[in-house]
Design a protein around this nucleic acid. Structure first.
Lengths: 147, 147
DNA sequence: TATTGTTATACTCTATAACTATA
DNA sequence: TATAGTTATAGAGTATAACAATA
């Protein structure tokens, strides 16, 4: 049985469900991104944290948890790792001593620059079947339902 | 700090990445679907298996693994559970005694009918921000990159 | 030799609760 | 009382390798 025989299920009810297509697309996309980013010692999740740390927006850990749909305790582990590799730092917030603001170090900024190139190349590959205007439309629709 | 303060990151580079939006949309969608389907004793993954079992396409376990992007060993557990609750049956394939074909029982067909209604209602809710034509366009774009 | 289904195992991810220090 | 961060832990999801039966 050839590996591509399962394409016949493309006609199934399931394959018409947007939720299923969404899950399938992101499984493929995240898999791709993880294997590429791994060459830089990052994964999709630590890349996301690094990106926000490098944004200049000075996110707190609580904000990272909310925006990335992760639990606060997971952010601790991710920031621990990024801090250990000296890509980000925890800065005490001047207004609230309970709060840490996460900012990228110079090394982190440089790593982010490289990682973003990798991420964008990966994305282009994942969306290779779409035209430029279709990619733009997909992004528009996704941000409409998710932001 | 109010919970919705993290929307300010909507302007970040990360929020412009399709991969990130994809991951976010499916996390919300699968979460929704799981909690709704749980009232029927199903999850998104067992619903997907049941759907294909009920399709009349007679998938093998290997085909289920491939089409659902899951490992063969995970299919074993999912089919075990669905078989234990008498929603599907393993039928020996006439052409190859190694192979099982997974088919829905009468009870499974009836359950699928109800579960599909739930899944479609959930999907409509997840995509509430989109017009009908936008939903159709999103589905078209996703199936283009994933099938 | 290769493949289907199975079992076992380990690793990652995710969710929960409890604790501390601050507010 | 409530919140930010932390720790610990358990459950779910995922990946890998090895095995028996069959091709």
């Amino acid at each position: 049985m050839a590996k591509s025989d399962a394409v016949r299920f493309g006609a199934s009810d399931l394959a018409q469900e947007t939720e299923f297509l969404l899950a399938r697309a992101r499984a493929a996309g995240t898999g791709h991104a993880n294997s590429r980013l791994l060459t830089l010692g990052l994964k999709a999740r630590s890349y996301a944290v690094l990106s926000l740390a490098a944004s200049g927006l000075e996110p707190t850990q609580r904000e990272l948890a909310e925006f990335l749909s992760l639990d606060a305790s997971q952010i601790v582990a991710l920031v621990d790792h990024l801090e250990k590799t000296q890509l980000v730092e925890r800065h005490p917030a001047p207004t609230d001593r309970r709060t840490n603001v996460i900012v990228a170090t110079a090394k982190g900024m440089e790593m982010y620059s490289r990682a973003r190139d990798v991420a964008q190349a990966t994305e282009a590959e994942s969306l290779a079947a779409l035209s430029d205007s279709e990619r733009e439309e997909l992004r528009r629709l996704l941000s409409k339902i998710t932001l």
